[in-house]
Simulated scan of single mutants.
Amino acid sequence: MSEEKPAWVKSMAEPPFASRQFTADLKNKVLQRAGESQRNHFSIISAVCVPLVIASLVIGWSQFKDEVLPSRIKPHVEISGNPTARTAYYDQGRRLFTVNPEPYAKAGTTAGYIFHFDEPLETYLEKTLTLQAVHLQSGAKETLSSEVIAKPSPGFSGLERYTARFVLPLEGMWELNVLLDDKPYGNVELFMLKPAWDITPKFQSGAYMIRGAEKKVGFIDAGFIAGKTQKYMWHFWGKDDLLNGPFEVKAVKQGTDKMIVVYSSNKLSSANALAGELNGADRHVVTSMELPETGRWRLLPYVKGQLLDTIVVEVST
């Protein structure tokens, strides 16, 4: 005779539910929710990881482009519709120099530039370092500075802080070329913003009011009438090495990039085209000039092929 099982054993053997609960429908719902959970988890991982991967690729490319890419000319990047300057020059992946322009430099206005030359001082010592520029749109050429390198930058062992101040007459992109003893050394590109076209104010020197850049260059303004030649007395301030040489005046009309010559001394016989002191200025010269059309014009005075500054005038009928 079999022994009767205790009541608790019988209760454990029975299913805990009154009816079968884990139906096929319930199974499908569980599987469906599990799939959604995996997809949501994957979406969260994607949202976090994909941007990080993309950012890493961008940063890696940027570092590669700046430090490894052996290109001499890097691509431009546009900001607010204006291409940015290419401020470093590389020769087969080796950087030779960089330039830091004065922020928001405008055409027609003198600005400062700091060059960092990477090679040892011996590369440049006793050589003539010349800066020239070419306007990429019009082809206009400018000689900006030229000097024999005799010593390092103050406080440095080389030319880590070579400074220059110059003015570029036209807006847009300029290629700035560095030459050593008239041989190409490298180039960068600078973007000049639109110039101001306010009439240049006058300043007093001696008994006269002079229109121009005070203590630099200007002339006694007799007014300008379109198509009429008149005489103008120019005044200059500076050392002889800056002011000894032929004198030339170019002009560009507002809204154009075409420069015309309105006065030029004889370049063959005018090794010293400027006369001596007058009206508080170091040098002076009398010229005859004519501007062909009404409107605003920017006068560009050059001595020895180097632009001193710019002067805006109004031409009437």
Rank of each mutant, 00 (worst) to 15 (best):
W61M: 01
P154S: 02
P83M: 12
S138C: 05
E142D: 11
T310M: 00
S316N: 06
Y113L: 15
L268R: 08
N40L: 09
G255M: 05
L52K: 09
E126T: 04
V48R: 10
I44L: 08
E290K: 11
K258V: 13
Q230P: 01
E214H: 01
V261I: 12
T98P: 00
P15M: 13
D181I: 06
D66K: 12
K202M: 06
L131Q: 04
G60T: 07
D282Q: 06
P152I: 08
E171C: 06
Q38G: 11
V50I: 06
G223I: 00
L57I: 13
E142N: 03
T23M: 02
Y263D: 05
A13G: 07
E102L: 11
L129M: 03
V249M: 02
R211Y: 03
S288C: 13
F219P: 00
L243N: 07
A226W: 08
S153T: 10
K74S: 15
E314S: 07
Q230F: 15
I199D: 03
K253M: 03
A111E: 00
I79G: 12
Q21G: 08
L121E: 07
F115C: 04
E293N: 03
V285T: 03
R298H: 03
S316H: 02
F247R: 00
G81Q: 14
P6V: 13
E293V: 14
M259G: 02
E78I: 11
G218Q: 05
S145Q: 01
E314Y: 03
L57Q: 11
K267N: 13
G276C: 00
P120H: 07
